[in-house]
Design a protein around this nucleic acid. Structure first.
Lengths: 152, 152
DNA sequence: TGCGATTTAATCGCATACGATATATATCAT
DNA sequence: ATGATATATATCGTATGCGATTAAATCGCA
């Protein structure tokens, strides 16, 4: 038998990339939320920002960014949109005019009280595993960010 | 003691949203890959597309989209960019001129053979848990997409 | 055979992410 | 007090995602 041409070394498949699992799961969540949020006139990121705003009143853009792992370049347009929709109020802090503080308006709190994402619990198919899964993925995130900070 | 004003019902915190864990972990992966991919002149999505292209030769845009959970509106500009960088070739299928087939060029295979993402294994801090984690997150993704397909 | 329906990519518009920069305000050192 | 420095937010340009539409090619079926 003639020597076979060297098979092109198969590189690592997508299924072995944790980053791709996370990437594609994120796309999947966005699509699952889409019909729910369309009803409410919100995008996925806008909704997540509202959830973060409910955790503490009168957060600054910077504080909100720490919660969401985003910066003002991304948040400012989103917060302006949420303001125009009547879900939040933005105002300069009189004690430090550099700072903008965001407050959740009643319409925003009302929307969150309905917990529109809850109906996706079943769609995850994860049952009670959902809690440890959140924790493990959050840990992964924190590990990666710590690594990046180290070299940043 | 006068009756306390009803405490505003705390809505579900960000830490209990699996979607936020996934969302933020995805951002974290992008940031961890950034310095590595900057060296190679690639973006995160371009890199993932290359990995997917290595799995099968001469894939169509549609096939690649099924692997990546993306469509031609997102892929076409990315593939054109990878072509301009010399990592892939794009050509119409002579047997069906609607179809565009993508082939990985030697420069692309060489890049993948170096597995530039491998040095992030340690940064995940997940040790051998990384394999079951990939599987669980992929399962989550598939469950969510099945749900969305059901109502799409 | 021919023509409407289907399929595949590509294009367009909008909303994120994010690096780089700009702007306004506050702080600090003298 | 004042100028240099630092900080907080906003703006700008580029690269995704994605719904909607378009353009080209193929298919199906009378």
């Amino acid at each position: 038998m003639p020597p076979a041409a060297p098979a092109p070394a198969k590189s690592r498949p997508l299924s072995n990339f944790l980053c791709f699992a996370v990437y594609s799961a994120n796309l999947a969540f966005g699509r699952a939320y889409k019909p729910i949020l369309d009803e409410l006139g919100l995008t996925y990121t806008q909704y997540i920002a509202l959830v973060a705003l409910a955790e503490k009143d009168e957060q600054t853009v910077g504080e909100l960014g720490e919660r969401l792992f985003l910066e003002s370049n991304t948040l400012t347009p989103i917060l302006k949109k949420l303001e125009s929709l009547g879900f939040v109020a933005r105002r300069r802090d009189p004690a430090d005019e550099r700072v903008v503080r965001i407050s959740l308006l009643p319409a925003g709190q009302t929307l969150l009280d309905k917990d529109p994402g809850a109906i996706l619990f079943e769609a995850t198919g994860m049952g009670q595993e959902i809690v440890p899964m959140q924790q493990t993925i959050a840990e992964l995130r924190d590990n990666l960010l710590r690594h990046s900070r180290g070299k940043g």
